[in-house]
Write a protein that binds this DNA or RNA. Structure first.
Lengths: 194, 194, 194, 194
DNA sequence: CATGAATGAGTATTCATTCAT
DNA sequence: TATGAATGAATACTCATTCAT
């Protein structure tokens, strides 16, 4: 009897379909089918297809951060924190059935989805970036990291995570989170120069 | 009299519109208007809207590589080559009126565009990666770089370029190509550890 | 405690909404809200939206006639009766918050509401007409009126009432029932010729 | 080869369907079918269903006035002019396949069609009224008519025309334009009092 | 070759109605 | 009885594509 709340059901179905087919190619009816409900029901909980996408995005990002923060609590050292972030990122993507790349890319090109959504995206993006930035700054303060350009370094590091996801999905590569994470951090920390 | 060939005209118009509005939101008629020709004419040169996109993508990538290779010819040292790649990437994006990010993201989510296009994308992706990979391997052979995981390092480096583009567009940041390129390479080469 | 019967409540709410927004633009939920009840409850008393409209129409016409007949009882002379009809018509419309025009017009165009409703409308229309016809015939018999075409005169007279309502609503004119009624009857009785 | 212009074709088809079924019950596709064209073509000439209705209404009113004015040119006497108006009205309705009543009624209840259309309707209504008003005033000036309330008389007369149409359609009566017109004018001029 | 008028397949959304509670 | 969450049939409108000129 204790059914999952309808709204959650829709969000999950939406995630699966949107990430697999992209926003425009996803039909509202498909989401309903996957959620095992009637098409009209979606409009009881969301005011439009774009709204479903928007809320799903927020839900997804929140989930990401929740898992991340939990992981970060244990660590104290900047290096370990960065390592945790990379691991978390990879695990998250893998758990998400490896479809998350789509989400990012499709969403970034949907300016037609209204300024409000754009704002949500930018702010969640900044939030992620800031989380990393703080760690790097902490590392510099502690004397563990060099005095590099923090913003750039953050973009660099953050981008590399995206690049890895992108490669994973586009090339259909299976990877070992721990091994990859360690290699990534090694490069980031020590550079590639001999 | 020396008019630009019609096909080229369409490709350029398509690039502008597709990158500004994304694939689905771009109307064929808009491309025609921007190209200063009739809607029907497009179908004389391309068999569908997807085909226009596909060919435009190839043209864009070719252009990217042409400029890149030209730049790489001058350099002999792996480090300088990587530096050139970063600079070229940033300059290219800037020249492209900062719209290229869209291209990547939108395209990656269009599985509905057929397997053929997917293949084109993957292969051009691999081509770009390989170009970088070769340089890194060369650096290792020459003893300039450590013996790191080349594939991963490539993904890492390549991804960081994407991350920088993404940040540029999403956050609307203006950057100085040379300064940024040097900082990026500095991090890549020396790492961030003190 | 002496609550109004639910059905009556719905009918009144329906009248307000239907007359303000027309049949198609009225949502069943709106009627329920205005009646202060749940949407489903309407279907306990009526079998469809069209049925609500149908019954409301009958209720409205009955009310009209009830008021009219009451007024006519006092009068004995045909001329006074016609005068009473005009006054009653105008007062009725005014009391109805000047929305009745809508009712007539919307309803007349709803062939899609089924033959049954059409019949109700026609028969109520005929009933109104007959009421007038009888008075005119009586007037002729009494030698007060000329031997004009009774049916046509009825239509003419009845139509003019509608015309006045229509003008009132469309042009948003406020009128004095007594003054107008007397002028109307004056024209009807004496014509406009000098 | 000399086909009727598409826009005109659509307007005529729209008139037939709208007047038969009312605005809401008319499907755009039905208009297209009746016009013998594709659904999309309608949107080449009109920007919405409401727009088709709006333009059709104007076209219809213009046609009415064109025929009316032509008829009025020949007459010089106010009485003859009124007679002409009545005849014209009846003939017009008959020619229009007896569907015009719908038009008036449906349209008057479509406040949801936007303020612009409301304005068009009111102004065409006033125009018709003014045409009649002028004739009555002329009659008074010439000493043919009594000094009655002109506005009211106009509404009265105009309404009676509507009443006759309404009766014709609702009761499905066939009438002889000339005979009816003369009787109507007789009542209007001389009243019904003996 | 070039065109743009014509087309109709495809889809988000609304809302009357049902029915489990 | 009363309710309102759930439903899906119904429909205006868009736009890639065709083809007569």
């Amino acid at each position: 009897m204790a059914e999952k709340p309808k709204k959650q059901l829709i969000l999950e179905a939406a995630f699966e379909v949107f990430t697999k087919k992209g926003f425009h190619s996803t039909k509202v009816e498909e989401i309903a089918e996957r959620a095992g409900i009637g098409k009209g029901t979606i409009y009881e909980y969301f005011k439009s297809k774009a709204d479903v996408f928007h809320e799903m995005y927020i839900w997804y990002v929140d989930k990401y951060f929740a898992e991340l923060e939990e992981g970060l609590l244990i660590e104290t050292e900047p290096v370990d924190k960065l390592l945790k972030i990379v691991k978390n990122h990879i695990v998250f993507l893998t758990n998400m059935k490896s479809l998350a790349g789509k989400l990012l890319s499709e969403s970034s090109s949907n300016m037609d989805m209204g300024a409000e959504f754009k704002k949500t995206m930018v702010s969640s993006y900044k939030e992620k970036m800031d989380r990393i930035k703080v760690i790097i700054e902490e590392g510099i303060k502690k004397g563990v990291f060099r005095e590099i350009d923090v913003t750039l370094c953050t973009m660099f590091f953050f981008g590399s995570l995206g690049g890895i996801s992108h490669a994973m999905f586009l090339l259909d590569i299976d990877i070992n989170p721990d091994a990859v994470a360690e290699k990534v951090i090694d490069i980031l920390l020590n550079g590639i120069k001999k």
